[in-house]
Design a binder for these strands. Structure first.
Length: 322
DNA sequence: AACAGAGCCAACCGCTCATGC
DNA sequence: CGCATGAGCGGTTGGCTCTGT
């Protein structure tokens, strides 16, 4: 025999919570706690709600010290950095932002932050990314859909930011410079910071030249890899997000940004991760079919730059192993 | 003023994993 | 050991609000 049924689905109220319901739930939990059983809780306090609904309402709205809206730029940076590193693990990201809920961060990302950072892209290009373009007019369904939304977004975001970062190495070619908004400037600075640690894979971007950096050694690579081994359950040294614990978030974020930079700047810095590890890095693995389709821009004015930047990234960073 | 479309967000849905029986 | 349920999570949606025409 299992446990008692969750709730009588036909007899539970749905939709927005009333102030009375909120008050009931809050006063009960304030007095007695959840009792470790959300399913039984609504019956105890006479609420015609599903236990799951009560839990959600408490966690996302009624819980003390919950903050709504008004995300700071520091919070924006943390969300962006972690999203690039671990994807849509909203609960993990929320754990790094006291007072924020996973639902809030998820909504904030989907409705504002993503657009704020990536800007707009043309729908036609978006479609091409999901179904690679055949120059002969024949569609290749064997490849579609090639990217999960999460992987695609993470790649877009990284490429976009990588593109912004690369501007520093084109400092003599001001015509290529985009107009960065304040947040983008902050993100570039964040990436520059990541690039300087933990092993100085890349010098400060404004000092970059073509042959600016010593190749990373195998020993350095192993040191970086081992820096996240606190995660005892890691399935793959590249799938950093799957088993993150709090103490590793910052390390992992730094580490993976370095790794991505290593991939993209591979030809320059001589960084060669193990092939089997690359195979596990889903974000890039999924890109197998559509490298040449990747043309991104944050606004129409920097279209030409973005073409050059993304093309350059693929030619120099990904061709080696895919 | 009225309408349409876009943006936003609270809440629901459905899935996975853990755990009780 | 296997089944059923609980907890938690990410994805999705319905409806309200805002903005533009």
């Amino acid at each position: 025999m299992g446990r008692a049924p969750c709730c009588d689905k036909a007899n539970v109220k749905k939709g927005p919570w009333s102030p009375e319901e909120d008050a009931k739930l809050k006063s009960y939990i304030d007095k007695y706690g959840t009792g470790g059983n959300w399913i039984a809780l609504p019956q105890k306090i006479g609420l015609k709600r599903c236990g799951k609904s009560c839990r959600l309402r408490w966690l996302n709205y009624l819980r003390p010290n919950i903050k709504h809206g008004g995300f700071s730029e520091e919070e924006d940076n943390i969300i962006c950095s972690l999203y690039i590193s671990i994807g849509s693990r909203w609960s993990i990201i929320a754990a790094q932002l006291p007072g924020r809920t996973d639902n809030d961060i998820k909504n904030y990302w989907n409705t504002r932050l993503k657009k704020k950072l990536l800007g707009r892209r043309k729908q036609s290009t978006a479609n091409r990314l999901l179904k690679p373009f055949d120059p002969n007019g024949l569609e290749d369904d064997s490849c579609a859909p090639v990217l999960s939304n999460s992987a695609l977004e993470r790649l877009q975001l990284h490429m976009h930011l990588q593109g912004l970062q690369n501007h520093f190495s084109f400092s003599n070619n001001t015509i290529l410079w985009p107009k960065l908004n304040h947040l983008q400037e902050k993100m570039v600075q964040t990436l520059k910071y990541f690039n300087q640690s933990p092993s100085n894979l890349v010098q400060p971007a404004h000092e970059q030249k073509v042959d600016f950096c010593e190749p990373i050694t195998k020993q350095e690579y192993l040191e970086i890899s081992n820096s996240k081994i606190d995660d005892q359950l890691g399935n793959s040294s590249w799938d950093i997000g799957s088993n993150l614990v709090d103490s590793n978030i910052e390390k992992a974020s730094t580490f993976q940004n370095d790794l991505i930079d290593g991939l993209i700047n591979n030809k320059t810095i001589g960084f060669q991760p193990p092939e089997d590890s690359v195979a596990d890095f889903d974000c890039f693995k999924e890109m197998e079919c559509l490298k040449e389709s990747m043309i991104w821009w944050s606004s129409d004015h920097d279209l030409e730059y973005s073409k050059a930047a993304s093309s350059s990234s693929w030619n120099y960073g990904l061709g080696y192993s895919l």
